[in-house]
Simulated scan of single mutants.
Amino acid sequence: MTYGATFPLWRKAAGDHWPAYTRHPFVEGMKDGSLPRTSFLHYLVQDYVFLRHFSRAWALAVTKADTLEEMRSCAATVHALLNEEIQLHVKVCASEGISEEALFAAEEAPANIAYTRYVLDAGHSGDFLDLLAALAPCVLGYGEIGARLAREASRDTYKDWIGTYASADYQEACASVGALIDSAIQRRIGSQPEASPRWPALCERFRTATRLEVGFWDMGLHP
């Protein structure tokens, strides 16, 4: 999965941090079913909290956008996060006796605070491209992980999670975000982004967010 032209360049710029994220022991534990359920539920509760902040970041992207098309794309992502993706967390946690009220009241882990505030700060202190570079590892990384686990998973212990991110709907959302990033890059820094003075900073945004994704999995693996 490439999800556009910019994403492979950013993924390459992330270096070893990218496979540390997408092939983290937490992810591989979902693949073979060895991930402890307590770790998964701890992660899921924290990811519910994360998605609330992530939705705010995508809403901020609406205000940073330059065109109506960009605004619509960002608004559609907010809708998908709040009304579709987050329902996976509510459904699975409810089956384990964790209510949505308890999810909403959950104490936020330090790794969660570090990641979500970094993304929000990227948007508040930077422009649309800064924010997209910080948002991209989560959206597109989960698409990559979900597609791979759907092919490779040897157990169906975590089939609901894998199915959500491998689904046609989520993969289509990833393709839309990839196209949004490509068009935003083209509009703001041209058809040869790697030649732009801004390029290294955007790669660093993406790389830092990827490192924070690794920390998020670490947090999930060791509740």
Rank of each mutant, 00 (worst) to 15 (best):
25 P>M: 09
25 P>V: 03
25 P>D: 00
25 P>R: 06
26 F>N: 06
26 F>W: 09
27 V>N: 06
27 V>G: 02
27 V>Q: 04
27 V>Y: 00
27 V>C: 08
27 V>A: 00
28 E>N: 15
28 E>L: 14
28 E>F: 14
28 E>K: 14
28 E>V: 14
28 E>Q: 15
29 G>Y: 07
29 G>S: 06
29 G>L: 01
29 G>F: 07
29 G>T: 01
29 G>C: 07
30 M>N: 07
30 M>Y: 08
30 M>E: 02
30 M>V: 05
30 M>F: 09
30 M>I: 09
30 M>W: 07
30 M>P: 05
31 K>N: 12
31 K>L: 11
31 K>F: 13
31 K>D: 09
31 K>P: 09
31 K>C: 12
32 D>Q: 04
32 D>F: 03
32 D>S: 02
33 G>H: 06
33 G>M: 06
33 G>Q: 07
33 G>F: 08
34 S>N: 10
34 S>Y: 11
34 S>W: 04
34 S>R: 09
34 S>P: 09
34 S>E: 00
35 L>S: 04
35 L>P: 03
35 L>D: 01
35 L>K: 04
35 L>H: 04
36 P>Q: 00
36 P>E: 05
36 P>W: 05
36 P>F: 02
37 R>T: 15
37 R>D: 13
37 R>C: 12
37 R>N: 14
37 R>Y: 12
37 R>A: 14
38 T>Y: 09
38 T>R: 13
38 T>M: 15
38 T>C: 12
38 T>E: 11
39 S>Q: 08
39 S>L: 08
40 F>S: 05
40 F>A: 02
40 F>H: 02
41 L>R: 07
41 L>Q: 06
42 H>N: 12
42 H>G: 14
42 H>M: 12
42 H>S: 15
42 H>V: 10
42 H>Q: 11
43 Y>M: 10
43 Y>C: 01
43 Y>P: 01
43 Y>I: 09
43 Y>R: 05
43 Y>N: 05
44 L>R: 10
44 L>D: 10
44 L>A: 11
45 V>P: 07
45 V>I: 15
45 V>G: 04
46 Q>C: 08
46 Q>W: 01
46 Q>D: 03
47 D>P: 03
47 D>C: 03
47 D>Q: 09
47 D>E: 13
47 D>R: 00
47 D>K: 08
47 D>F: 06
48 Y>L: 09
48 Y>D: 04
48 Y>F: 11
48 Y>E: 08
48 Y>K: 07
48 Y>I: 01
49 V>G: 13
49 V>W: 08
49 V>C: 14
49 V>E: 15
49 V>K: 10
49 V>S: 13
49 V>R: 14
50 F>Y: 11
50 F>L: 02
51 L>P: 01
51 L>W: 04
51 L>H: 04
51 L>T: 02
51 L>C: 08
52 R>K: 14
52 R>M: 13
52 R>P: 11
52 R>V: 15
52 R>I: 15
52 R>N: 11
52 R>E: 14
52 R>F: 13
53 H>M: 13
53 H>K: 13
53 H>E: 13
53 H>N: 10
53 H>Y: 12
53 H>Q: 14
53 H>R: 12
54 F>P: 03
54 F>G: 03
54 F>H: 10
54 F>S: 06
